[in-house]
Structure formats: C-alpha cells, structure tokens
Design a protein around this nucleic acid. Structure first.
Lengths: 159, 159
DNA sequence: TTGCTTGCAAATTTTTTGCAAAAAC
DNA sequence: GTTTTTGCAAAAAATTTGCAAGCAA
C-alpha cells in the first residue's frame, strides 16, 4: 500500500496536491480503508473502519480527507439516486450498475458503453470533459435468485 | 395543461396512483410549476413558484407532491453531483449535460448515446431496466464566450 | 362522512465550518 | 518554529415525519 501525498513517495502516479500540503495518519487510513473495496461505501462506513485504527478520528476529518483524495484524483465520489455520496477507490474510467433489488453498486467495465459517440456534441458547440453512466436493474445474484424462485433479499440502498 | 391524477381526466397517459388517491390544488400547482421549464430546478425553486399561487403551501407539501409525481412517472428527479435533487418535467428518455462553467443542466437527446449496447450485460446475467447518462463539460454558450475571450459568468451550481 | 392530504414545526440525515490544540515538515 | 490538519461541537442544508386540522371524494 502506497502512502499518500507524502514527500517520501516514489510513486509515479502520486500528484502533489494544490490544497493539501501534508500527509497525515488520518489521510493515509482513509485512503487505505477504501483500497480493495468494491462495495462503494458511504462516508460513515469509511469512518467506522478508520475509527478502528484511529479511535480519535472525527467524521469531519474523514470528510475532509475524502475531499482531498477526490481532488487529488486518488478516489472517486459517486452520487447515485441516493441521499449520500459513495466513494470508489477505482479511478480508471468505468461505469456503475445499481441493483434495485439488493442495493449493491457494481463496477462495470463495458467496452461498448465507453464508446458512446459524443462527437456530435462537439459539433453542436459543446466541450465535453467527462461523462457518467449508471445502469439500473437486477444484478446477477438477484436475477439468478429470482430464476430459482428463492425469496429475494430486501433492497438495502442505505447501510 | 392537463390536471393530475384526478377522476375527471381524459388523458390517455395519466396513470392512476398506487399511493396518491386525491387530486389537490397543491399537487396541480407543483406539476404546473415544472411544465415547460428546462432549467431543472431544485425543490426550493419549485416551492418559490408555487408559493406565489398558493401562499400557504409548505415546503414539505412540495416535497411530498414531487415524490408523488415522480412515482407516478409524470416528472423525473435528477441527482447529479450536487447536494440537492433537481426535477425535470421531461419524462421521455433523454440524458443530461452539466456545464461546469455556468452550472446549467441541459437536456440531451443523443441518438447515439441511447444506442449504448447493454446486451452484454444481459449475457452476464444482469437484468437491465434503465440507465442514466450525464455528460460534463462546457455548454455552447460558455464555450462560445470563451472563444471570444469574454469573461465567463461564475459557475452557479446552486440557486 | 371518511380518510387522504396539508401545514406547521420539529426531527433526521448528511455534510460543512470555526476555532483552539496537535501534528507535520 | 511555522503552517497545516485535526477534533470537537455547533451550524448548515436538504429532506422527512408526527399530528391535528382541512379538504376531496
């Protein structure tokens, strides 16, 4: 696990922050708490995890560090059709699938979807920087469960 | 302008509500306040408009009626990378462009974009019901303004 | 009349902020 | 030693909810 935005870094993809100037244990733990996680947790869940390592950390600090990391491009924040932001350690270009049955948010790496032709927009005078695609429906697990007529798990959109 | 979820309706595309049972002035005005609007206003702006017609209406009622209308499929709610929901009277399938310069949210009717091939997902066991595409960048107006080196309007993401 | 909907106010939920103390460099 | 970041508590912002009163059917 690489430390974050610290002078001791050798990493090639670590960019010095415009806003954040110092590496702290809190920042590092917030970053670590997300690594390898594919559940797209909410801030509170990240707080819960980091709190185990740093019992004195506050939720405000978690939010501040999440912002720093997003700004730095080391994580992504997702605002789906929910009231709270989710956070995603996967920074490469990808989309998301939201299961309306179980509430899971799943990373999608769709070759096709990424080939959305946005050049017509440029011809219309728009300048496109990025785009988000979210697909809704039923995930593989829930769809299979329904096929075998097993009772569904209740939808949990909030943890 | 058609009234909403009322027995007197003749409209072909009005669906009787599962939850809402009665048509009220409040519901009607909330719906009317959105008709013909392409700015994707926040709940508070809709409240401001309806308040002119019904000075005693409360924000809570506006929220309740917006929910009813969304549930009924008569309007859409949009959660972009903002802290509050926007509402959209356009219920036909379309996407959105968010101008990062001026903050406007613009309806996109992209022929190409709607042809995103989601069939690979079905082969993977997913059941797809719908999808959202939001494109970010600079709108036509802001892009033109920049080309003529006129000063940009400040970005206003919240009203 | 019946019971759904409203208005009001208070509660909730999520995120942000001010400020003194602690930590990083 | 100087400046940034943290922890705490309080504020802010958006939305939801309980409940008595009002209104639609």
């Amino acid at each position: 696990m690489k430390p974050i935005s610290s002078g001791r870094l050798v990493s090639t993809h670590v960019v010095r922050l415009a806003t954040r100037k110092r590496a702290t244990r809190q920042l590092e733990q917030v970053f670590k708490a997300l690594q390898g996680d594919h559940t797209h947790p909410f801030a509170h869940e990240i707080y819960r995890r980091v709190h185990k390592k740093l019992p004195r950390i506050s939720l405000a600090t978690v939010y501040r560090n999440l912002h720093s990391l997003v700004e730095e491009g080391k994580i992504r924040s997702l605002l789906l059709d929910e009231q709270a932001a989710r956070y995603d350690p996967e920074t490469s270009e990808h989309d998301h699938f939201v299961c309306e049955r179980c509430g899971r948010v799943i990373d999608l790496f769709l070759r096709r979807a990424r080939r959305i032709d946005l050049t017509p927009l440029a011809k219309d005078g728009y300048v496109v920087t990025t785009h988000n695609l979210t697909v809704y429906g039923m995930c593989q697990v829930c769809a299979a469960r329904r096929r075998t007529s097993r009772p569904p798990r209740p939808a949990v959109r909030k943890p």
